[in-house]
Design a protein around this nucleic acid. Structure first.
Lengths: 158, 158
DNA sequence: TGGCAATAGTTGTGTTATACACTTAATATG
DNA sequence: CATATTAAGTGTATAACACAACTATTGCCA
């Protein structure tokens, strides 16, 4: 069988589709927000303020990529870069007031997308799917070739 | 509950992780193949030759993006652009001999990745997950805002 | 049948996400 | 205290992506 192969295939396809679709819907509603910006808004809203390096790890992106993303969002006033007092190398990225406000406006749009996507799918199946996706992510981060010794982060995440 | 919201979140995260990981593993094995190239090799190998516009639709990318991807792979000798005799506007993209050969070398690497990802996941859960992902994709393409009237393609795909 | 709309694909061009190599600054350690 | 380590940011290059416009071919219908 090749269920397994197909899962990764459909993960990719669905991921692409979702990214395009969410940006399109934001655009229709008058908001110019990229998928990366939305992901960071979501991350900071749900998980609270985070260091750039944490964001990089969670999103599997380079730290410099995160720096540039944050640059742009600081420029737009969506997030704040707060220096850590006890360790002045560190920064913390937090949602600004207008970031929170934007999130509140975007959330219903995202919810609509989710509703459309989840049509005709039972709660049980949704739960199983979520568990499988989490497990797969965890498996891959454990078996990662490029970035080693990040087990703790992975455990903390699940 | 927000299982549903989380599913899309983890789809994105897993998708990114997979793309990075597969390229890394190809690289370790000495192959410089981008995720897009791999996806096209896979698509053409499993589904046979395809028109550029079909490829664009399946991958949710613009036709011009596909043109450029195919350009590069033709240059590398991985695929052939075959003009359709009966309708000379149409093209068909097929794997070349060396494209098939490269695919044969990459497939075991991808299989290894899949094996790692699917560790500790039961067959039943994998099947359910696959079905859910397909359904979600189908739901989103049906509810699509940007590209309308593509129901037939969607049905043909599932 | 002749002309115009529709279709398939490519080019021109600009944007954006991405990351590698390097730098700067601060903290930890031996 | 000197050096290694860590956190973040810069300089720069590349690759994916898509909109607009263009070419070539086919379909349609009046």
């Amino acid at each position: 069988m090749n269920y397994e192969r197909q899962i990764l295939h459909w993960v990719n396809r669905l991921g692409f589709l979702t990214r395009k679709e969410i940006v399109a819907r934001f655009g229709v509603a008058g908001f110019e927000v990229s998928p990366e910006e939305w992901a960071l808004l979501l991350l900071l809203n749900e998980g609270g303020a985070k260091a750039p390096s944490e964001i990089a790890e969670i999103t599997s992106k380079d730290r410099t990529t995160v720096t540039r993303l944050v640059d742009g969002m600081v420029r737009k006033g969506l997030v704040n870069r707060i220096p850590n007092e006890s360790d002045r190398r560190r920064m913390v990225i937090e949602l600004s007031a207008s970031g929170h406000s934007l999130f509140a406006k975007l959330a219903p749009i995202a919810k609509g997308l989710i509703g459309d996507a989840m049509g005709e799918i039972g709660e049980d199946d949704a739960q199983i799917t979520l568990a499988v996706l989490k497990r797969m992510t965890s498996n891959l981060q454990g078996a990662d070739l490029s970035s080693s010794s990040k087990k703790e982060t992975q455990d903390a995440k699940l």
